[in-house]
């Protein structure tokens, strides 16, 4: 039993080291950020104009999404995407009235900052400006979700699906609604 005790403590040490090393990678994905401060609810401040222009460098670094890779933010973005009726024009990524968001074609740029701008300031041909209406952190959550729609493979931070796929799906089952 004493050899067991020694082995147990060695095993515990290894686990401790492994855990610490994994801390950085996992912590960000699983963070749940319940915004408790009013400052975080500032209505969206616009970012400087996009640096994209014909003939220019393509790899322009822009502002990063503070919620990059954060699972809670992506799921909240998914919820807001339906709640604020983005699905009305963009469906669940496939587009319709608005362009598709689940492809790699970005009319106004696919960097986080560009997507933020599209949501906050609106775009020509019908994209409303949400900046004056919703807090900045919610736009970043939406940005995170929109980015997750177009990734080649879903990241481990994004959900595999929503709980509805067809838009008209909140009718309960009953005699009048056999499904």
């Amino acid at each position: 039993m004493s050899t067991m005790a020694i082995s147990n403590s060695k095993v515990a040490l290894c686990i401790g080291v492994l855990a610490l090393s994994l801390w950085g990678s996992c912590c960000r994905r699983e963070q749940r950020d319940f915004r408790a401060t009013a400052e975080a609810s500032q209505l969206a401040q616009s970012l400087p104009d996009s640096q994209l222009h014909p003939g220019g460098a393509t790899n322009v670094a822009g502002p990063q999404n503070p919620f990059q890779g954060n699972a809670y933010a992506i799921t909240e973005g998914q919820r807001l995407f339906t709640a604020y009726n983005c699905v009305g024009c963009h469906a669940h990524g496939g587009g319709g009235i608005g362009p598709a968001l689940n492809d790699k074609v970005w009319i106004y740029g696919g960097q986080p900052g560009d997507i933020y701008e599209s949501i906050a300031r609106g775009r020509p041909n019908g994209m409303p400006a949400w900046g004056p209406r919703i807090p900045e952190y919610q736009i970043w959550q939406l940005t995170a979700y929109v980015q997750s729609l177009s990734e080649g493979e879903p990241s481990i931070a994004s959900p595999a699906r929503g709980d509805e796929i067809s838009p008209s799906s909140v009718q309960p089952r009953g005699e009048n609604n056999p499904k």
Partner: peptide, 23 residues
């Protein structure tokens, strides 16, 4: 690592499903 389950030991869906339990 903050990846502890949080939907109850019997983990009812839809709460434990992809839409309501992120990560």
């Amino acid at each position: 690592l903050n990846i502890g389950p949080d939907a109850g030991w019997f983990s009812y869906v839809p709460l434990a499903g992809p839409a309501f339990s992120p990560g």
